[in-house]
Nucleic acid binder design. Sequence first.
DNA 1: TTCTGAAGTTAGACATCTTCTAATACAGGA
DNA 2: TCCTGTATTAGAAGATGTCTAACTTCAGAA
Lengths: 151, 151
Amino acid sequence: MAPTDLLSRLRARHWRLSAQRRAVAEVLAGDHVHLTAEQVHDLARERLPEISRATVYNTLNELVAMGELAIVDVVDGPKRYDPNVTAHHDHLVCEGCHAIRDVPRSTPPPRVSGSAAGGFLLTGVEVTYRGLCPECARRHGLPAAHATRDR
Amino acid sequence: MAPTDLLSRLRARHWRLSAQRRAVAEVLAGDHVHLTAEQVHDLARERLPEISRATVYNTLNELVAMGELAIVDVVDGPKRYDPNVTAHHDHLVCEGCHAIRDVPRSTPPPRVSGSAAGGFLLTGVEVTYRGLCPECARRHGLPAAHATRDR
DNA sequence: TTCTGAAGTTAGACATCTTCTAATACAGGA
DNA sequence: TCCTGTATTAGAAGATGTCTAACTTCAGAA
């Protein structure tokens, strides 16, 4: 089975690994990482102070194109990058602070009937749960979180 | 039951309706509308040439805050605005041209187990299907669309 | 080792999308 | 009509992401 760790996967692909690319890949190590490009840049600079924004964006875009990195869209604010592309999972996004939590995909994802798809060639499904994290719920004066209600 | 038409809903709410706001609301009438802010501005200007960009953004943001308008996120490019908030439906987004198609939600949406939600107060679920529309599939030299495969 | 071409990196300009600011205009109640 | 709060406006500014052109580094050939 293919390694689940980003750096190992890149090595296995014989991706040309410069110091800059390694810094980006290292920052993105881990399973529950959802950083913005800016955050990646800041963290990468701690390892390699001279790394430029353009290189970070170039690298992120390449990794996405290679399928080694997924984009998580939060609606507000910049894109987040998720290195966990091997384990299918969904996301739970806090509407208050935009924190993201991974949610394992227990049931098979929903499907579109052929007629509803209307000739579209489907390539993927994303499920995004919206809500308030415990802290934001408290800040909004809402009761402790237990109920789930469909929107 | 609440009216499904945006303008009627706004009237029912006694929303202060200026000429500018009416122009925006009229542009957004319909069930399968997924316009960008720029497109809303352009169309609104056909009715009211002096309407400003800031007013369009203000109005869209208010409508979203009121829950009368939903944001559809396409990952690339600007946000789209969807006035159909009464009929639960999902979206099918073309990765090539960013066209959006509404998909009726036939099966109940997936749920998160309480433990996976980890204290989040859930407010909604979105399902986004990604794929290629018939034209983009053809342009990419892909076969006619019938198969659906999970990512 | 040195050369060479391809690929990677960089700073900064630029493009795009959205929000903010401060001034002005307007709507509806007293 | 006047007053007060809200809506609107142009343009500046902010946030995010991409492009350009020069420079550097690397891998392989000689």
